[in-house]
Design a binder for these strands. Structure first.
Lengths: 245, 245
DNA sequence: CGACGTGTTGATCTCTCTCAATTAGAGTGG
DNA sequence: CCACTCTAATTGAGAGAGATCAACACGTCG
């Protein structure tokens, strides 16, 4: 299969990327080394790896994670098409987290110093990257709020809603027929700081209550209102407007 | 009291800022609106606030946090001198988190669009900001690992080590006489996803075991090795080198 | 067909939370 | 100078959410 040229990148249709002009596309194209495919469950970046390149996720799912030496694993966030991978580690630094694919995936590979070239040759792209990085941090912030302060039901409701939104935004039908959902219950547990068993029991409880359904690797939202209420999310994910006393 | 000019900024002595040349300093100086002081416990940015400016923490401590509508609060990370505040929200966007000071503090205030100007006029500074943003994310990553997968003792050991390191790096004596430690136990609890009571009991346990001591707002490390072992941190905060199967 | 990964469920166990009460220090007003 | 109030730290007791242990079901695959 032939590789994409950046001006034909399927991601260009996404709102996030619409701003890129001809020059920016050529710049990115010139920095792109190649495309690379990974099978589901493959490791792109090992924890502690020192020479990891820069990736962009073109299609598929992946996740970032950290582990303790006895094997306990925490998934930091899930990666969908359009996400950057590897901005965190400075040149020459060890990767502070690993990255593993959830599905067969395609990545664009860039040299480590592309990040600097991008800033140098296009301040606008550099600004976008800062913003994307800050945005990814805010995803981790959301998860930290969940793991720190929500109970199991609330955490799962929150995860389902946020992942559903992100996945639906990438789908032509906007999620009307459910969205692809390649996580196992172990991934959900590792993403929410729960045990596998308790994750299973809580998922089943919500499912039996008619809030959602997972079937054949697809997620269906059956009672978004109830899920949103459980998650204590409001409207478009904006924080609650409480009196600021 | 007169305001600092950027070329006299006390933070310039820090390794992080050494790279800035004359031009960069002038640029930053031109974007700086003013200095602003806040008393301990004051709110710089409210959750949901739409017009928050950009700050740099010149001296003092602060923290970022999110709350649920019933009041449960999660502290996302602690802010020390040199940290940026407010890169997360895009222009016009609502702040996804609040910011409150822990001590009397001084901030440099910048206009919202300074971020873009900085990128436009100095790609090198833009690159630095991307990197700083990514670095802040990695701090949140660390906390998420703690909250998701470490027990109370391990979480507290981890927090003490990481905060001690950051605070000591800002002190002339490198922390030999302990470091200023303005957190109440409630802050520690909110930062680690624990209850106040359990935080207290766990702190006392570690203190009685001789691992650390908190006295008069100063933190003393008494058995770093034991704390590091508890936290499952290695050497310089690098991830454990385990056989990669 | 057996091995393996994933999902499911029941039965304990325990870490952490919640509730309650006490102490100590700092600040305030009379 | 002394009640009074408030915040922060402390400790005990009981309750509960979630962890751990154990078994089993089901589909895939070599």
């Amino acid at each position: 299969m032939t590789e994409h040229r950046c001006n034909q990148c399927p991601l260009r249709a996404l709102p996030l990327f619409l701003a890129n002009g001809k020059q920016e596309l050529q710049l990115v194209q010139s920095l792109k080394m190649r495309e690379q495919r990974f099978a589901a469950g493959e490791t792109l970046i090992f924890e502690g790896q020192t020479d990891a390149p820069l990736y962009t996720l073109l299609s598929g799912w992946a996740f970032r994670f950290k582990t303790l030496s006895d094997g306990r694993r925490q998934i930091l966030n899930f990666l969908l098409a359009g996400d950057f991978i590897g901005v965190q580690q400075k040149m020459g630094d060890a990767a502070a987290h690993g990255v593993i694919t959830l599905t067969d995936s395609v990545f664009c590979v860039f040299q480590r110093d592309s990040l600097w070239e991008l800033h140098r040759q296009s301040p606008a792209m550099g600004f976008n990257i800062t913003w994307l990085t800050a945005h990814e941090e805010s995803l981790v912030d959301d998860t930290l709020l969940s793991v720190g302060r929500r109970n199991a039901e609330e955490r799962i409701a929150t995860l389902l809603i946020l992942l559903y939104k992100r996945a639906a935004a990438l789908q032509a039908d906007g999620g009307a027929s459910g969205v692809a959902f390649p996580l196992t219950q172990q991934h959900i547990a590792d993403g929410l700081g729960l045990s596998l068993v308790h994750t299973n029991k809580t998922l089943r409880k919500l499912e039996r209550r008619g809030l959602h359904r997972v079937e054949d690797g697809r997620l269906f939202m059956r009672d978004v209102k109830a899920l949103v209420r459980l998650a204590d999310l409001y409207g478009d994910g904006k924080p609650p407007q409480r009196p600021l006393i």
